[in-house]
Design a protein around this nucleic acid. Structure first.
Length: 136
DNA sequence: GCCAACGTTGGC
DNA sequence: GCCAACGTTGGC
């Protein structure tokens, strides 16, 4: 099992929107590196859900429900893919970007090293630590 | 609102 | 194939 992080601007699509829908196709990724990460996701993988821009915090955990398939919002024949995600659990306390940056053990976190990439891998120990930080 | 990072486009 | 110009993302 692998771990990931996806970013979303809460004004565009928030954790609340996600849980209201009960599942979603993670469409709209138009960056090759991010697409490669989407393609590597397998059902059961866990995905940190990060609110960018206005909130800048990890707010929940999603689970990959279906592996990558062509992105229905992209032109037919285009290389873009989407995975199907379902909410797994909300964090008791959102973990702000500042807290991620302040934690030395997260210094290699892909989110911090490549802040513009919208889908990034997360190491198992990093994932566990973020969950600890977000526990009640 | 500004700007750094970085991906893309297009002229040469 | 190089690189300048430009657009976008996202933190501050």
């Amino acid at each position: 099992m692998n771990y990931w992080l996806v970013k979303s601007e809460p004004e565009a699509y928030s954790w609340a929107d996600f849980t209201r829908e009960t599942s979603t196709d993670w469409t709209g990724v138009r960056n090759y590196q991010a697409r490669n990460n989407l393609q590597a996701m397998q059902p059961g993988d866990l995905v940190l859900f990060y609110h960018s821009v206005s909130e800048k915090a990890v707010v929940g955990v999603a689970i990959v429900h279906a592996a990558a398939a062509p992105d229905a919002t992209a032109e037919a024949g285009s290389p873009w893919v989407a995975v199907h995600l379902r909410p797994h659990e909300a964090l008791a306390r959102p973990v702000p970007l500042a807290a991620l940056k302040a934690e030395a053990r997260l210094s290699q976190l892909a989110l911090l090293r490549q802040s513009r990439l919208s889908v990034t891998p997360v190491r198992p120990e990093e994932f566990d630590l973020v969950l600890e930080l977000g526990a009640g």
